[in-house]
Measured scan of single mutants.
Amino acid sequence: IGSLMYASIFGNVSAIIQRLYSGTARYHTQMLRVREFIRFHQIPNPLRQRLEEYFQHAWSYTNGIDMNAVLKGFPECLQADICLHLNRSLLQHCKPFRGATKGCLRALAMKFKTTHAPPGDTLVHAGDLLTALYFISRGSIEILRGDVVVAILGKNDIFGEPLNLYARPGKSNGDVRALTYCDLHKIHRDDLLEVLDMYPEFSDHFWSSLEITFNLRDTNMIPGSPGSTELEGGFSRQRKRKLSFRRRTDKDTEQPGEVSALGPGRAGAGPSSRGRPGGPWGESPSSGPSSPESSEDEGPGRSSSPLRLVPFSSPRPPGEPPGGEPLMEDCEKSSDTCNPLSGAFSGVSNIFSFWGDSRGRQYQELPRCPAPTPSLLNIPLSSPGRRPRGDVESRLDALQRQLNRLETRLSADMATVLQLLQRQMTLVPPAYSAVTTPGPGPTSTSPLLPVSPLPTLTLDSLSQVSQFMACEELPPGAPELPQEGPTRRLSLPGQLGALTSQPLHRHGSDPG
């Protein structure tokens, strides 16, 4: 009997000691992992102490058991019943959930998450997105703005933001810190809205009876308010094209079509300037034949640059190039080494500058006005007194259609001029006259002087055409309008007829 009692007592005591040691061994194993994590990542002392304290409290609170892992091991129907039991206190005593059906309560219970916070733990920081609604079931918390405590909340209090009033989550206007050990039930806004969409009859009752104890939403960050730039940057990543407008005076608003859609830094370009900076079609017209890549860069430059609305530039004389043409100036200075066709295309550029300027006046029909002061630039669209967005969009579309028509007509005119030049060069190729044979009589004449090349004649003739079109064909006081194609086609051969009437002889060394 004594040996039996000794064996039973010894066996029970050893089993008890073994169970104690097993729990202690698990605790030390998990604690060792936490300390190894702290050492590996070199976490500083204040945060390291918070980690160790939280682990110790969580171990004593749950005995080292992962409740979520245990809950996920059950089937979904059983999980709903378990969640309904775990959140029964909240669902029974909170006013917004009263009167809900059994199915609605089960769906809500599945969406709730339980959070346990030790003292000093910050649940929400200032500036964080308010993605959830919090219900306090135990403990107390404090809300701070800077170093000032603005509120202390306790059991059955609710904090967050009214989700039904805002389409997008706002930002917190303060820090939420736990004063004691707290148990909180939180539900994400997407989950709550999903359940309320499934039960629309409960939705009206819920929003009407929901009383948020403390609204954390920062009202200064609401979209459309003066301080909402940061919020707009976070939620409006896919922005449309940006529009900046110059201020319109009362006198300017009476004149229709007073602005032109141009790229940034293009205030001095012609009315047909689009795409790359520098001139019509993204580059100076005089350098068009020598740089074919300008047409390839036109599309990307047009689509990537934001639109700006600026006044037209001052008018340019008909014979003056659009500006920024070092290529043609070098050719004029060193005409001995340049291609003979460069002079002809220089005359073509003069005609283009004249036609572009006159067509700009035809479509816009307003006098040039000086540029406004820099303080009046970049007025935002949302400022008071601005035109409605639809009106601005319609004006932009009208300007775009005008620019497209202008570009089409300029292309047709350019093709006409090039065809005339090619026809003239085919009839009378460039050549130098040879020395004529002296006559049989004693009164022999001296050799004839060489005839100037055709490109120079073409430049003079085209300059005469531009001056003739600019000065004589337009009646005084009438708006400057571009001439039609047949009129220009008839004027060019008439001007060139006198020049080509002389018999030109080919030089023996000319390969053409």
Score class of each variant (00 low, 15 high):
Phe468Arg: 08
Thr456Met: 10
Gly233Lys: 09
Leu492Cys: 14
Met414Gln: 05
Val417Leu: 09
Ile141Trp: 01
Glu472Gly: 12
Arg217Leu: 03
Arg401Glu: 05
Ser208Lys: 09
Ser172Asn: 01
Pro321Gln: 15
Thr445Lys: 14
Gly139Asp: 01
Pro388Cys: 06
Cys182Ser: 08
Asp191Gly: 02
Glu407His: 04
Gln402Asn: 06
Pro280Val: 12
Leu377Ala: 03
Gln400Phe: 05
Thr219Tyr: 12
Ser334Thr: 04
Ile158Asp: 02
Met328Val: 13
Pro315Phe: 11
Asp197Ile: 08
Pro482Leu: 10
Glu211Gly: 05
Glu480Met: 13
Ala470Tyr: 15
Ser140Gly: 04
His505Ala: 12
Asp413Gln: 01
Lys242Arg: 09
Lys186Gly: 07
Val150Arg: 03
Asp357Glu: 14
Phe354Ala: 08
Leu427Gln: 06
Asp250Gln: 06
Glu254Ala: 10
His505Glu: 06
Arg409Asn: 14
Lys186Arg: 11
Phe235Asp: 13
Asn156Gln: 09
Ser260Tyr: 08
Thr426Lys: 03
Leu179Pro: 01
Lys333Met: 10
Arg145Ile: 03
Ser287Glu: 12
Ser382Phe: 09
Ser290Arg: 12
Thr253Lys: 11
Ile212Ala: 02
Glu473Cys: 13
Lys333Arg: 13
Glu258Cys: 13
Pro429Ala: 15
Pro326Asn: 04
Leu449Cys: 02
Trp207Asn: 04
Ser466Gly: 11
Glu407Met: 06
Arg409Pro: 02
Val428Ser: 08
Ala178Cys: 12
Phe354Gln: 07
Arg168Thr: 14
Glu365Ser: 14
Arg302Thr: 06
Ala498Pro: 09
Leu309Lys: 11
Tyr199Lys: 02
Ser244Lys: 05
Glu320Ser: 07
Val148Asn: 11
Tyr181Ile: 04
His185Thr: 06
Pro322Gln: 09
Leu153Asp: 01
Gly139Phe: 03
Cys369Lys: 03
Asn220Pro: 15
Asp191Ala: 03
Ser287Phe: 15
His505Met: 06
Ala478Phe: 13
Ser172Ala: 10
Gln255Glu: 11
Arg168Ala: 12
Pro450Asn: 09
Leu165Val: 06
Arg302Ser: 10
His205Phe: 07
Cys369Leu: 08
Phe135Asn: 01
Met221Leu: 15
Tyr363Met: 08
Pro450His: 13
Thr373Pro: 14
Phe468Leu: 09
Glu472Ser: 11
Gly224Ile: 13
Leu499Phe: 09
Tyr181Ala: 09
Phe235Ser: 12
Thr180Gly: 08
Gln467Cys: 12
Leu184Asp: 01
Ile222Trp: 13
Lys155Phe: 03
Arg168Glu: 10
Thr443Glu: 11
Ser452Gln: 12
Gly227Arg: 10
Ile158Tyr: 04
Leu179Gln: 09
Leu406His: 04
Tyr181Glu: 09
Gly174Asp: 03
Gly234Glu: 11
Ile143Asp: 01
Lys186Glu: 11
Gly268Asp: 12
Phe245Cys: 11
Pro162Asn: 08
Pro256Arg: 12
Ala412Thr: 04
Phe312Gln: 09
Arg368Gly: 09
Gln422Val: 06
Glu320Ala: 07
Asp397Val: 10
Ser433Gln: 15
Leu492Asp: 14
Pro447Met: 07
Asn378Gln: 01
Leu449Trp: 15
Phe214Cys: 08
Ile351Asn: 07
Ser303Arg: 10
Met328Cys: 06
Pro306Gly: 05
Thr213Val: 04
Asn404Glu: 04
Leu410Val: 08
Tyr134Cys: 10
Asn378Met: 05
Pro226His: 09
Val195Cys: 08
Phe202His: 11
Ser140Arg: 11
Tyr134Glu: 01
Ser236Lys: 12
Gly170Leu: 02
Ser137Val: 09
His185Asp: 03
Leu309Gly: 12
Ser313Thr: 10
Ser273Pro: 09
Val149Tyr: 02
Pro306Cys: 13
Gln422Leu: 04
Thr408Gly: 07
Thr219Ile: 13
Ser463Gly: 09
Ser260Met: 05
Gln502Trp: 15
Ser509Val: 10
Ala431Tyr: 12
Thr443Leu: 06
His507Glu: 13
Val465Cys: 15
Trp207Pro: 03
Leu496Met: 07
Arg274Ile: 03
Gly268Tyr: 11
Leu410Phe: 15
Thr213Ala: 10
Thr337Ser: 10
Gln238Ser: 11
Thr445Trp: 06
Leu163Met: 10
Asp147His: 07
Pro482Ser: 07
Ile379Arg: 12
Leu420Ile: 10
Leu231His: 13
Pro429Leu: 09
Gly441Asp: 11
Leu376Ser: 07
Glu472Tyr: 06
Pro169Lys: 10
Leu341Trp: 15
Leu192Ala: 01
Pro340Ile: 13
Asp128Gly: 03
Arg239Asp: 11
Pro482Lys: 15
Gly268Thr: 10
Gly233Ala: 11
Arg217Gln: 03
Ile136Cys: 07
Ser284Val: 14
Pro493Cys: 11
Gly265Ser: 11
Gly234Arg: 09
Glu365Tyr: 04
Thr180Leu: 02
Ser287Leu: 01
Leu427Ile: 13
Pro200Trp: 03
Asp460Glu: 12
Lys171Val: 08
Ser208His: 10
Asp460Arg: 11
Lys240Asp: 14
Leu421Glu: 06
Gln483Ile: 13
Leu196Trp: 03
Pro479Gln: 06
Leu231Gln: 10
Cys182Lys: 01
Val149His: 08
Arg405His: 05
Gly288Phe: 05
Asp330Met: 06
Ala151Thr: 09
Ala178Pro: 03
Leu376Cys: 15
Glu232Met: 10
Ser305Ile: 03
Ser342Lys: 07
Gln502Val: 09
Arg246Asp: 15
Met414Val: 14
Gly512Asp: 05
Leu504Met: 15
Leu377Pro: 13
Ala261Met: 13
Leu144Trp: 12
Val195Trp: 05
Met425Phe: 07
Leu130Ser: 01
Gly174Glu: 03
Pro384Lys: 15
Gly324Glu: 13
Glu296Gly: 11
Glu365Met: 14
Leu192Asn: 01
Arg241Met: 12
Arg401Ser: 15
Thr337Lys: 06
Ser349Lys: 13
Thr437Tyr: 11
Ser394Gln: 12
Gly170His: 01
Leu403Cys: 04
Thr426Glu: 07
Gly146Leu: 04
Asn215Ala: 04
Arg423Leu: 06
Ala478Ser: 14
Glu480Val: 10
Leu231Arg: 11
Val417Glu: 04
Val451Thr: 15
Gly263Cys: 10
Phe214Ala: 05
His185Lys: 11
Pro280Leu: 12
Leu496Ile: 08
Ser342Ala: 13
Ser291Val: 11
Val428Trp: 14
Leu406Met: 05
Ala344Pro: 10
Tyr432Ala: 14
Ser444His: 10
Thr456Ala: 08
Gln424Val: 07
Phe235Gln: 11
Leu196Gly: 03
Asp336Leu: 06
Thr131Ile: 08
Thr249Lys: 07
Gly160Val: 02
Ala178Arg: 03
Gln400Cys: 15
Gln402Cys: 15
Tyr199Leu: 02
Pro450Gln: 06
Ser304Ala: 12
Arg266Ile: 11
Thr416Tyr: 01
Pro226Cys: 04
Ala478Gln: 05
Pro223Ser: 09
Pro493Asn: 08
Leu130Gly: 02
Lys240Ser: 15
Gly263Met: 10
Gly494Ala: 07
Val465Thr: 12
Pro453His: 10
Leu309Ser: 07
Gly265Leu: 13
Ser291Phe: 15
Glu201Trp: 01
Glu296Lys: 05
Lys171Gln: 09
Ala261Arg: 09
Ser260Ala: 10
Ser137Tyr: 11
Leu474Asp: 13
Thr458Gln: 10
Pro322Ser: 11
Asp336Val: 08
Leu410Gly: 04
Ala398Tyr: 05
Thr437Asn: 12
Ala132His: 13
Thr408Asn: 03
Ala178Lys: 01
Pro326Ser: 13
Gln495Pro: 13
Phe468Trp: 11
Ile152Glu: 04
Ser353Asp: 05
Leu396Val: 04
Gly441Glu: 07
Thr458Asp: 09
Ser349Ile: 03
Val417Gln: 07
Ser433His: 10
Arg389Ser: 15
Asp460Phe: 01
Glu258Leu: 10
Ala398Leu: 08
Leu403Asn: 06
Leu366Glu: 09
Asp197Cys: 12
Asn404Leu: 11
Ser290Lys: 12
Gly170Ala: 03
Thr458Gly: 11
Leu504Tyr: 08
Gly299Tyr: 15
Gly233Ile: 08
Thr180Trp: 01
Val451Trp: 11
Gln495Ala: 10
Val149Gln: 07
Ser137Met: 05
Tyr181Asn: 08
Arg387Ala: 10
Pro429Gly: 08
Gly347Ser: 13
Ser286Arg: 09
Ser346Asn: 08
Ser208Trp: 03
Ile187Phe: 01
Gly347Gln: 15
Glu230Val: 08
Tyr134Lys: 01
